[in-house]
Amino acid sequence: MRKPVHIQIVLFDGFDPLDVVAPFEVLHAGGTATGGAVSVELVSAEGPREVVSGTGGMALRAAGSLDPARPGVVLLPGAAGPLGEPPGEDGEPEPGSIPVLLAATLATSLPGLLAEAVGDAAVVVAGVCGGSLIPAMAGLLEGRHATTHHLGLDLLDAAGVHAVRARVVDDGDLVTGAGVTSGLDLALYLLEREAGPRVAHAVEELFAYERRGTVWRATGPVPAAF
């Protein structure tokens, strides 16, 4: 068995529950399959607290504080709510919309903590759906390859990120998944990468779910245009 790996899933106000629960269940099952070598917990930038999601007031409890120096994986979910329209010259963004919820994280201590995590070679930063937009909007992913929900790919581009239209993108110590249900694919890939393919396959069978798409990496020849 490879060395133990710990995953911190970060909760913030308005998070998408599916982006949290799907990876948590997969990674928790990975812990069982490895005899505890994989562990996962819910954390927040503010410490232990009840965090309300963007879906019907559903709340989850963060058990601890995000520790950006702890080796392992820091996983960011996206937000849940109305998509919202970009504000006009005299307008304001729709309250509670996904863009507003994601932007609100930038006014917390989360960007500073993520900057520490991004700068630590022993930490892998992962994002599901809009979760990859948080460090991108904080200016932490310039020049990197990443994906997000297809409606947010232009926001990655605007932040200087090489947006890739793929289910999962592996850019070394940055691993990102596309929209919503890709949290399953991302978590299974993290298990494969950190604990090995046999563990990932066992969990995949347990959940009766087959991963979709090719994990994109910036390796191999550049394909010719079709």
Rank of each mutant, 00 (worst) to 15 (best):
P4F: 06
I7A: 09
Q8A: 07
F12N: 03
F12K: 06
G14A: 12
F15P: 01
F15N: 00
L18C: 12
L18Y: 12
A29V: 11
G30E: 04
G30A: 07
G31D: 03
T32Q: 13
T32P: 01
A33T: 11
G35T: 05
V38A: 07
S39W: 04
V40Q: 01
S44E: 03
A45M: 01
G47S: 02
G47D: 00
V51D: 00
V52W: 07
G56K: 09
M58H: 13
P68D: 12
V73K: 05
A79V: 11
G84F: 10
D90P: 05
P93Y: 04
E94S: 12
G96S: 06
L102T: 09
T105I: 02
P111W: 02
P111I: 06
A115Y: 04
A115M: 04
E116D: 10
G119N: 06
A126C: 13
G127K: 03
G127V: 05
C129D: 12
G131L: 10
S132P: 15
P135D: 00
G139W: 06
G139Q: 06
G143A: 08
G143Q: 10
H145L: 03
H145R: 06
T147Y: 11
H150E: 11
H150T: 14
D154E: 15
L155K: 15
G160Y: 09
V161G: 01
A163W: 05
A166D: 09
V168I: 13
V169G: 00
D170A: 00
D170F: 01
D171I: 09
G172C: 06
A178S: 13
T181F: 05
L186W: 04
L191G: 10
E192R: 15
E192H: 15
E194M: 10
P197E: 11
V199G: 03
V203L: 04
E204K: 03
F207T: 14
E210W: 10
A218P: 05
A218M: 11
T219G: 13
A225I: 15
